[in-house]
Structures are given as C-alpha cells and as structure tokens.
Simulated scan of single mutants.
Amino acid sequence: MHLTETRSKTLPHGAGPVARRRGGPLLLGLFGLAVLLVAAIGLSLAVGSGQVPLGDVLSGLFHPDRTQRAQLIVREVRIPRTAAGVLAGVALGLAGTVMQGVARNPLADPGLLGVNAGASVFVVFAISVLTLTEPRQYIWFGFLGACLAAVLVYGIGSLGREGATPVKLALSGAAVAAALGALTSAMLLTDSRTFDQFRFWQVGSLSGRESGVLWQALPFIAVGCVLALALGPQLNTLALGDDTARGLGQRIALARLGAAACVVLLCGAATVVAGPIAFVGLAVPHAARLITGPDYRWILPYSALLAPAALLLADVIGRLIARPGEVQVGVMTAALGATPFILLVRRRNVVDL
C-alpha cells in the first residue's frame, strides 16, 4: 500500500482524481489544435504564388479537371506541398518530444543524434559521386545517412559501464555531427555543381516535393508515430532519473532503444520529405508542455498536432512576404521560432523537464 502511494506521488502521470479533472480540458485542447491544423491545411491549399480562386481550390480537391490551369496547380503543387508539411511537421514534433524526454535535456532536438549531419553527407555523396540529380533518387541516401548517423551516435554513447546516458549521447552526437559536417563541407568546396544543387535541399523546403517521395516516406512516419505515442509512460518514468526508473521496474536500455528507433524513423523520414528544418522539433515540445504540464502521454499528441500546424503557417507566411517569389520554410521557422523560443526557455518551469 505504501509503495502504491509513493509511486502515485512520484510519477509525473498526475494519477488519480487530478488527472481525471485535467483530462477534459486537455481533450478540448486537442480538439482545438485539430481545428487549427485543419485551418492551416486550408490556408496552405488556398494561398500561393499562383492566382487560384477558392472555387478552383475546392474543385481541384474533389472534382479535378486537369485541363484547368488553376486546378492543375492545386493538384500538382499545393496538395503535395501541404502533405509534405503535415508529414514533416508530425515527424519533427514527435521526434523532438521523444528526444527531450529520453535525454532529459530541454535543448535536445532532432539534430542531437547527428541525424541532419548524416543525411547531409550522404545526399552530397549521392549528388557529387553518384551524379544523381532527381530528389526521388538521392533522397533515400539522406534517409540512409540519417539512420547510420543515429546508430553511430548511439553506439558511441553506449560504450562504457553506464551505457547510453543522456550526457554521453549529447556529447557523442555533437562530435559525430561536427565530423560529418566537416566532411560535407570538404566535398562541397571541391564541387560547385553539387553545392548549387545541395543548397536548396539544405535550407529546408516543402516546395517541389513529388507525391512518390511522400508515399515512400509515409510508412516510416506512421510506424514512428505509433512507437512515439506508445512511449509516453516510459518517458514519464525516465524523467524521474535512471535510479528511480529502475526502482519502478523500468527497463532503461529497452526504453532508450525504442526511443532511438523512433527518432531514427521520424527524423530520417522528415529529412527525406523536407530537408533539415530548424526549431520545430526544439520549440514545439516546450509550447505543448506549457499547456499539458510534464505528462508525456499528453505532450506527445499535442506536439503531433501543433508541429504541422506551425510548419504550414510558417510556409504560408513565407509565400506571402516575398511575392511573386517565396522564402523557404526552413528560413521562416528559424526566423519566426527564435524569439518565442527565447521567451519560453527564460521561464524556469518550462526548462525543467
């Protein structure tokens, strides 16, 4: 009896009547975020560089006529772009939340495991050495590089008696990212053609994404989402520290291995879809935590809805501020996310996980 009482007071689940009282408002919050995401999807489909009336947007969605230029823009440009934003946003939001939970580091993001650096070096290799020019060709090298980099970082961080501790993972991730970044720069400096092609992918963008690439990335994101949402209770226990988690019966190594697999799937697929995009995986979990508190069973679904909505809205703003051109979404997320994130991390209760 005493152990049960102690556990209910210690775990960040918010067990008991308090959790039940908070469940109703949090469910309403999820519904509100779902409405926000639908609105962001609508804006992404309706707003762009081309002049497309709202009627053609609706017709292009439900009754497309490919002989109409406006409807063709909707089908061939805006729908794949919006789908890419939703897929990449969900993946980045969940990956960032899982990384912050398993590393117990409020500044952890998908770049912590060297995922972006690994993807970049393999994409450069595919363009420069293998002379691949189509995104659907070299994009899988980006996914392979992301996976191998994450495995390398986890392998280095697992060396030693204590295994893959949060500090060792962060240090090994920084070291691997620095080494891979240097290798990428060395290849780019010796090949101007590769640099011209790579720089558009490196900045992070939702434009020009083929539906075939999205369909290929979808299964990886779906599996990663299911795994991430299932990790909520384990992340709650890991937040208490390794010793307490072991005392509560948590299998630390297995939980971290599952989290690593989840991050590899989500980060690799997000990088495949949109390139390396900053701030989404870093800032969104903090914003979700402001609403939900420390319970990862709620933070994860909140992040899964908030991240794609934020990414699509940033992309829409990027299309509007530089007409008839546009600012790529990777630039917009960094520009728009910096100030709110600084305000978030200045609040002590947000930084403490």
Rank of each mutant, 00 (worst) to 15 (best):
L27N: 14
D243A: 13
R81H: 02
A222R: 06
G32Q: 05
R297Q: 10
A245L: 09
L28P: 04
G14M: 05
L58E: 07
L336V: 02
R347M: 13
V284I: 14
A177K: 01
L159A: 14
M1E: 15
V124L: 03
L30D: 04
V350G: 05
Y296F: 13
V176P: 00
G249F: 09
L265K: 03
S120C: 11
Q250R: 13
P233S: 13
L3T: 14
G275M: 04
E162G: 09
G249Q: 09
G111C: 06
H13I: 15
Q100M: 05
G330C: 07
R104V: 07
A228R: 00
A84K: 04
L94S: 03
L107T: 06
R7H: 09
F125S: 07
G247V: 08
C267D: 03
L218C: 07
I156L: 14
A95E: 06
K9V: 14
V90K: 01
I317A: 14
L344T: 03
V351N: 07
A338E: 03
A222E: 07
Q328R: 14
G157L: 08
A83L: 15
L28G: 14
G249L: 08
I342W: 03
G85A: 13
R323P: 01
R193W: 09
D242P: 02
L290N: 08
E210A: 14
R297F: 05
A322D: 14
A40D: 02
Q250S: 14
G89D: 06
L3N: 11
A253G: 13
A177I: 03
L343F: 15
